[in-house]
């Protein structure tokens, strides 16, 4: 059975002061191989927690993760992760960052060099292979992070707001790059974002989560990712359906946030 299954996941954080946060409640999802799924939701609804459990950094209080038929325990090279920032190794140059996974597997330079160079060319860093990380801009650093993840050839790529720290223009270019990489590599991708547009543009499927307890609120099947692979993303945004869904989701999240605020007000 290929693909990623998230089965009845619950996560409860016991706080030191005795109270507890139900970060996730009975979350189930099946993700087909090669699918790109985007996850939206107000802040604090458990998106990062969900991703950390899938990556294997956290053990859920209930439920399990099954990848290609076997249970997931702990992190490994099958599930690659792209973080928002700060995950590159400053003490290595660009090339050594990208070749990190293969090197840790014990591959020799002759085995991985070709692929690493190729990936760096794809992400547009062909001329920056020997640069130090701190010499690169934020957008370039995220390209390195993408290439590093791909060089390891994982089955699933998990992205937690990977473009969240970038400026709007860089972000647009990176969105196209993510789509292009997805199409070329056929990887399964889970992408968390807090930008509704990004979620619509990049997700074949989109889930909106609701907070307290964190759960799946609504699910959409979307055509835009396939459209965007071969078109300018700005054209895709002009699609009549795009604006409609965007408004719908925006007001949905808006309502949730109002509700959270109302609850905090009431609690006072």
């Amino acid at each position: 059975m290929n693909g990623l299954a998230i089965n009845n996941l619950s996560m409860r954080f016991e706080l030191p002061n005795g109270s507890a946060v139900q970060a996730l409640q009975d979350v189930s999802l099946d993700i087909k191989q090669g699918e790109i799924l985007s996850v939206l939701g107000p802040s604090g609804c458990g998106k990062t927690t969900l991703l950390n459990i899938v990556a294997g950094f956290l053990a859920p209080t209930a439920g399990n993760i099954v990848l290609n038929g076997s249970d997931v325990h702990g992190p490994d090279a099958q599930r690659g992760m792209v973080f928002q920032k700060g995950a590159l190794f400053e003490w290595m140059n660009v090339r050594d960052n990208v070749s990190y996974g293969p090197r840790m597997k014990g591959q020799r330079a002759s085995e991985y060099a070709g692929n690493v160079d190729h990936l760096l060319d794809i992400v547009g860093l062909g001329d920056f292979k020997d640069k130090a990380i701190y010499e690169l801009s934020g957008g370039m650093q995220q390209r390195v992070a993408l290439a590093r993840c791909l060089a390891n050839d994982p089955d699933v790529i998990l992205m937690d707001e990977p473009l969240g720290a970038l400026d709007a223009l860089t972000r647009e270019k990176m969105q196209s790059l993510v789509l292009k990489l997805w199409k070329e590599t056929g990887k399964t991708i889970i992408l968390i974002t807090h930008s509704v547009e990004e979620a619509l543009l990049l997700g074949e499927r989109l889930i909106v989560m609701a907070p307290r307890p964190g759960r799946i609120h609504k699910e959409y099947q979307l055509p835009f990712a396939d459209l965007g692979v071969n078109a300018d993303l700005r054209e895709v945004k002009k699609h009549p359906e795009f604006g409609k869904v965007r408004e719908e989701i925006l007001s949905m999240i808006w309502d949730m946030e109002e509700e959270i605020m109302g609850r905090t007000e009431a609690a006072k």
């Binding site: 090279a77 690659g80 973080f83 920032k85 995950a87 840790m104």
Partner: peptide
């Protein structure tokens, strides 16, 4: 996140 990244890269 650096440690997490390294683990997910198979280290």
């Amino acid at each position: 996140t650096k440690v997490h990244a390294a683990y997910s890269l198979g280290a």
